[in-house]
């Protein structure tokens, strides 16, 4: 038993949220999450009630939670899942996504990188000798943009949460990368052939999103992507969570105050940073070069024999992956 009571109804609490200096029962945790999403949508003009929304889903807690919340709030939201070919991790992620959509009667579009474009993320990482997250992010951004435009959607929703955005902001600030800082905003308006993109979870932490999924009975991919283990993004999150532990509310202040106070100052820089865009010679997507980055990647890595996940991993990521495999087999 716990002694803590819900701040709203005084019933037994299921979660403590130090940044709110409060505890919540299941019902009022959900209420808090809904209200934070509604506030983000309203404050930043993210969605209109009759928008056709395409949610980028991975099978993880954040993308399934944002899809669930938007449907709960009455939005017309379909899902798009991209099969990245990251071994069992991708197989399980797809199963979670497909089950979520089927149980709720939601429309889910699936694109398989290997089947449709001749490569997967481990192979792209091996051939390009770049970190896997580079090919992964590039491929997903391109395919979500294309699917939104081809499908006549008004806006693409991603499950980026407060922790994601704070970690990116932390990294950009460590480097004083003004170009990236100027573009870090929870809404990217439709422009130059790109669809509008929004992040309705910008006010919610990943601990709150995991709690949403548990309370709502959403069975999501809990395991970490094997390609992401040991990456800088996770190191930044660890650092921010260490600060948060000492000073609850720090992450929210860091990111949300940036959005309120610094992003307007950097807005002119963001406008100036938009280069001279024209159509990719291969796929027609907007690009600053002759061919877009996705088509260049596809030309370079398409058709290579698949590279197993373990051959791309090094150091901590490889050790964690092999330990996980051992655990699964044992």
């Amino acid at each position: 038993m716990s002694g803590s009571k819900c701040r709203v109804c005084k019933e037994p609490a299921i979660i403590d949220l130090p940044r709110h200096n409060a505890n919540f029962c299941a019902e009022h945790l959900l209420q808090l999450c809904r209200r934070q999403v509604e506030k983000a949508i309203k404050d930043h003009d993210m969605l209109a009630p009759d928008d056709r929304v395409l949610v980028a889903v991975s099978g993880g807690k954040d993308s399934l939670a944002v899809w669930d919340i938007l449907v709960d709030l009455g939005y017309h939201a379909d899902g798009l899942y991209v099969g990245l070919g990251i071994g069992e991790y991708s197989d399980t992620s797809y199963e979670h996504t497909q089950a979520f959509a089927a149980e709720r009667g939601l429309s889910l579009q699936v694109i398989d990188l290997r089947a449709e474009y001749g490569y997967d993320v481990p192979t792209a990482a091996k051939v390009t000798r770049r970190v896997p997250c580079s090919a992964c992010g590039l491929s997903k951004r391109h395919l979500f943009d294309r699917a939104a435009l081809d499908g006549g959607y008004d806006v693409v929703v991603t499950g980026h949460n407060l922790d994601d955005e704070a970690a990116v902001l932390f990294g950009n600030t460590l480097r004083w990368d003004v170009e990236y800082l100027s573009r870090q905003y929870p809404v990217l308006p439709a422009r130059h052939g790109f669809p509008k993109k929004v992040k309705p979870l910008m006010r919610l932490t990943e601990r709150e999103m995991a709690a949403w999924c548990i309370v709502r009975g959403i069975d999501y991919q809990v395991e970490e992507c094997p390609m992401a283990i040991g990456n800088k993004h996770l190191a930044y999150k660890d650092a921010l969570n260490a600060i948060e532990r000492q000073s609850p509310g720090s992450k929210a202040s860091f990111y949300l105050e940036f959005v309120d106070k610094m992003a307007p100052i950097l807005a002119d820089r963001s406008q100036a940073a938009t280069g001279d865009l024209h159509r990719c010679a291969i796929c027609g997507s907007p690009t600053t070069g002759d061919e877009c980055a996705f088509c260049r990647l596809r030309e370079r890595v398409g058709g290579h024999d698949p590279v197993p996940v373990e051959l791309v991993l090094h150091g901590k990521a490889r050790r964690a992956y092999l330990a996980g495999r051992q655990g699964a087999e044992g």
Partner: peptide, 19 residues
């Protein structure tokens, strides 16, 4: 770190002071 984990008992979340 409490910020990085949730604790679940029988499918139900347990808060920090939960026994």
């Amino acid at each position: 770190n409490r910020e990085s984990f949730l604790v679940i008992r029988n499918g139900t979340l347990v808060p920090g002071d939960g026994r």
